[in-house]
Amino acid sequence: MINAKKLEEIAHQISESMPSGIKQFAGEMEEKTKQVLQSKLAQLDLVTREEFDVQTRVLMRTREKLADLEQKMADLEAKLAESDKSE
């Protein structure tokens, strides 16, 4: 779900931007930053692009079926109205 490589890059950038006196802790800080980022991103309940695309296709098919059913209902209502007039 979450691109681990991108998280590593972000954590590395954060550790690199720290003052030189703190860089001795860079490895530990990078790991902690990665853990925090992964934890917070996991809480966001994100979906992958693939999951999003699948749900988009499902929604499109559902809309098409709904439009077909609406048309069939309109046709049936028209036929019923015609048969009521002829009686």
Rank of each mutant, 00 (worst) to 15 (best):
A4G: 10
K6N: 11
K6M: 15
K6C: 13
L7Q: 05
E8H: 15
E8K: 15
E9A: 11
E9H: 12
I10T: 04
I10R: 02
H12N: 15
Q13N: 13
Q13S: 14
I14W: 04
I14G: 03
S17Q: 12
M18T: 02
P19W: 02
P19M: 02
S20N: 05
G21T: 02
F25T: 02
A26L: 06
A26D: 05
A26S: 10
G27E: 03
G27P: 03
M29L: 12
M29H: 10
E30A: 09
E30P: 01
E31R: 14
T33H: 01
K34A: 06
K34P: 01
K34H: 08
Q35G: 03
Q35L: 10
V36W: 04
L37C: 03
Q38F: 04
S39D: 06
S39E: 09
K40D: 03
L41Y: 00
Q43D: 08
L44Q: 07
L44S: 06
L44I: 01
L46E: 01
L46K: 04
L46P: 00
V47F: 10
V47I: 11
T48W: 05
T48V: 00
R49D: 05
E51H: 08
E51R: 08
D53G: 02
Q55W: 10
Q55F: 09
T56G: 06
V58N: 06
L59I: 04
L59N: 05
L59A: 12
T62S: 09
T62M: 11
E64F: 14
E64R: 15
E64W: 06
E64K: 13
K65F: 14
L66M: 07
A67Y: 11
A67I: 04
D68R: 14
L69G: 03
L69H: 07
L69V: 03
L69S: 07
E70Y: 11
E70W: 09
A74W: 04
A74G: 00
D75H: 01
D75Y: 04
D75S: 06
D75V: 09
D75R: 07
L76R: 12
L76Q: 10
E77M: 05
E77G: 01
A78Y: 05
K79F: 01
A81L: 09
E82Q: 07
E82P: 02
S83L: 12
S83P: 01
S83T: 10
S83N: 07
K85Q: 10
S86R: 14
